[in-house]
Design a protein around this nucleic acid. Sequence first.
DNA 1: TAGACATTTAGATAAATATCTAAATAAAGA
DNA 2: TCTTTATTTAGATATTTATCTAAATGTCTA
Lengths: 90, 90
Amino acid sequence: MGFQDTFKALSDRTRREILTLLRAGPLSVGEIGSHFDISGATLSHHLAILKQADLIADSKKGKFIYYELNTTVLDDILVWLKSLTEEDAK
Amino acid sequence: MGFQDTFKALSDRTRREILTLLRAGPLSVGEIGSHFDISGATLSHHLAILKQADLIADSKKGKFIYYELNTTVLDDILVWLKSLTEEDAK
DNA sequence: TAGACATTTAGATAAATATCTAAATAAAGA
DNA sequence: TCTTTATTTAGATATTTATCTAAATGTCTA
């Protein structure tokens, strides 16, 4: 149903790379940012889009905010994509 | 690697619906268009984007052009998404 | 509490994108 | 060949989006 936000979020290369980074576990915004050549504001913007798409979740720990992968929505996307690839989905 | 075109193509709702329609088999541009309230030019634009992303293939039959699903690229996307959802992809 | 650090919000801008109408191309049939 | 039908291309426009700098907010530590 509401795949719109999810696919929009996945349509940006930087955001996909952020998700890839988070495979290994939660990271703070600063740690994530160290992998990219973009401003903190831009990174924050990307994180907000990923969060709104429910692809990541955040938790505050003192001065830092940690983001981690949320795979629930990805599972739904997987089901939809599989329905396209499987023979005679009808 | 080159997921950019694919995810961009998938980020539009109309294009995703086109792919869903094509699950059942090839359709002409006109047949596809009958399911949407958009101009032929806009539909043509969407089909071009899906084709460039290698998500569909076309074949001319007389006056008509038929489009059909190409699932090869989707399989690659599936692999990437699974790598995100699986535990300890590391 | 004053500063330093981490992150977000605000506001601006340039590029990308979805859409339209009108015109062009291609093929079929009369 | 002329007309009709199918689809794409061209050109224009309004919206969305990725990005930046500057300012605001929140939190730790000296």
